[in-house]
């Protein structure tokens, strides 16, 4: 049995959990030891995967933890994501392939990581899309030693598919059209503000279904409510926090069946998991055209120039009802 040791900061329901989950699903005979430093409620996402061992380790103990694990367990692969300082401190034995993973969707963050990373310590650098791999290449020094590879993220087809029987109930707003948005309570990348603005441009029968995970700061939540209030859409939004991964697919299908749309107002992406997973469930997707999103091939998929609020509202309207009408 192959063994993989991977480490990332947040054990949440976010993107890296999707990445790890999908890898474990696709390689059931490989054992994955996944080490995080912040418990953001994501451990349950691995509960159905017998080949995953999840551990949350205090940050000040992480270096020793990984060093000991690498010295005592015969790992085939060791991956570190978004922690270049850690990568520089932990040594793996020669038998273990060492990979630094870049999933940051923001170019300046990638550049910063590459500036910090000692590339001589890694065998490969992985990025989740050609676009992201390109960003990494450009951020690396010319005399680099590690190979940069685009290793596309995998999709958990058991959960994200159009035909699964599980469809979440949406009884709260009978007859209304849901527009689902998934992200963080910030406007640097996921950009909820533009979503609220788009919602304002949509007719009143549309409502926003905002999914957030691993948010704990009341001030950030308060800011979202404040922004919604300012735009007059506070009564047209529903919040879902920390929805388990297995329920997100069911929710996408429910939104699809209600004639709804997935809307991404992200200002940057390294892969665009949300977009791809929604599309995999047969849900129409409208997204700002950023990063690698144009690399994906999805049905009922519209890309809009970033920041084009009216264009996005138009795309959402054009896509809504499409699936139910066809059915």
């Amino acid at each position: 049995m192959e063994r993989v040791l991977s480490t990332y900061v947040n054990c949440s329901l976010g993107g890296m959990t999707s990445v790890y989950r999908a890898r474990a699903l696709a390689n059931p005979s490989t054992r994955y030891d996944l080490v995080f430093t912040k418990d953001r409620g994501g451990e349950s996402a691995f509960a159905d995967l017998p080949n995953c061992n999840v551990r949350i380790v205090r940050p000040d103990r992480l270096k020793n933890y990984l060093s000991f694990a690498l010295a005592t367990v015969d790992y085939d692969l060791f991956t570190v994501t978004s922690q270049p300082e850690l990568m520089n401190q932990v040594s793996a034995p020669a038998r273990t392939k060492v990979v630094y993973e870049v999933h940051a969707p923001i170019e300046t963050v990638v550049e910063s990581e590459m500036r910090t990373l000692d590339v001589t310590r890694v065998d490969e650098i992985w990025a989740p899309s050609e676009w992201a791999a390109d960003v990494v290449q450009q951020a690396l020094p010319r005399r680099k030693h590690a190979r940069v590879r685009a290793v596309p993220n995998l999709i958990d087809r058991t959960r994200f598919n159009p035909t699964a029987r599980e469809v979440a109930p949406l009884r709260g707003r009978p007859g209304a059209i849901p527009v689902i948005w998934i992200g963080r309570m910030e406007n640097v990348q996921k950009n909820y503000t533009d979503f609220l603005r788009v919602l304002r441009l949509l007719p009143p029968e549309y409502y926003g279904l905002l999914l957030f995970s691993f948010e704990t700061d009341p001030a950030r939540m308060s800011a979202v409510l404040g922004a919604a209030g300012m735009l007059g859409v506070e009564d047209r939004i529903d919040f879902y926090f920390n929805v388990p991964q297995q329920d997100v697919g069911a929710l996408h299908r429910a939104v699809r069946d209600a004639g709804g749309v997935f809307c991404s107002t992200a200002l940057s992406e390294s892969y665009g998991y949300g977009v791809v997973e929604a599309g995999a469930c047969g849900l129409p997707v409208a997204a700002y055209d950023v990063g690698p999103l144009s690399e994906h091939v999805l049905e009922d998929y519209r890309l809009v120039p970033v920041g084009d609020l009216r264009g996005m509202a138009h795309a959402v309207r054009a896509l809504s009802g499409r699936v139910t009408a066809e059915a």
């Binding site: 979440a168 109930p169 709260g172 409510l225 529903d238 919040f239 926090f241 920390n242």
Partner: peptide, 16 residues
């Protein structure tokens, strides 16, 4: 009524 309740209320309503 903390933020976890705000994040749960609509989901509860959708489930009836």
């Amino acid at each position: 009524a903390d933020m976890s309740m705000v994040g749960l209320l609509d989901r509860c309503h959708d489930h009836g």
